[in-house]
Write a protein that binds this DNA or RNA. Structure first.
Lengths: 134, 134
DNA sequence: ATTAATCCTATCTAATTGGTAGGAATAATA
DNA sequence: TATTATTCCTACCAATTAGATAGGATTAAT
């Protein structure tokens, strides 16, 4: 299961992308329209900003805009920022790899092999640009 | 990420299936060979038993055997028992469905659509019989 | 000066994860 | 029959994570 944080982050990015006419978009508005607790949303936005997924404008009339071309933003990117690995076990994660403490031989581990295959199936779905979501 | 509980459960089922000559298999042996904390393993086995994935024989020389034909056991089954849903958001889970509290319209939700597609890609991998794992 | 924003640090509560403790019940076998 | 090896059961516990909330400093438009 992904966290609420991740779901909120995805909603936020989609909402900003859907409403270019309201740029820069205030956290208050996002919070109200997407039913995300305001202070929690602030945290999430800070996280997204530190990873360049959004940019901010300070002061009155300020708010957030996407940090890069929406074509280049995927759900996978957002998930990795807020939840960490996409893979379901750490020993098959590319970016967050960690060996399993009790595993005897990673090369022949059937569990690892299966979850590696699983990750391979998952990635293309999650790495599509957010602009392709309908 | 799946829990350690789930990984231990999978290892346990595979180990029992791999060693029919040691049936019934004691928790002590599984614990030692697969490096799973004994008391924790007991919990997991109880859980697997209550879902008919293993059967037990009590007393000295007792232990555990598979609760059904290994052809009929999948990683998905084990994961559902110990971790719950396979789907990454509750609103696309078949067996553990729950609506998203903040969602306005499930039918048109793009996030839901994507994660539903994701689940559809994941299931065939996880629902293969454990006997096919190499 | 006021107001509406972002930014920052810190704190809090509840649930979950990963595990442990202690012992009762059962059955093989010496 | 006593011992031993096992499953079975209830309860507890510590650390971490999830999901926020609090309070205020900073910035900029009006």
């Amino acid at each position: 299961m992904i966290s609420k944080r991740a779901k909120y982050a995805i909603k936020t990015i989609l909402f900003i992308n859907d409403h270019p006419e309201l740029a820069p978009m205030s956290a208050k508005l996002i919070s109200e329209k997407e039913h995300i607790p305001y202070k929690f949303l602030e945290n999430i936005l800070r996280d997204l900003k530190s990873h360049q997924l959004v940019k901010s404008v300070r002061g009155a009339e300020g708010g957030y805009t996407l940090g890069k071309d929406p074509e280049g933003i995927s759900i996978a990117q957002i998930m990795r920022i807020v939840d960490g690995p996409i893979a379901l076990i750490p020993c098959v994660s590319e970016r967050y790899y960690e060996p399993c403490s009790e595993c005897e031989d990673e090369e022949t581990c059937r569990i690892r092999k299966l979850f590696n295959e699983l990750r391979t199936e998952m990635l293309p779905v999650l790495e599509r640009s957010i602009t392709t979501l309908k």
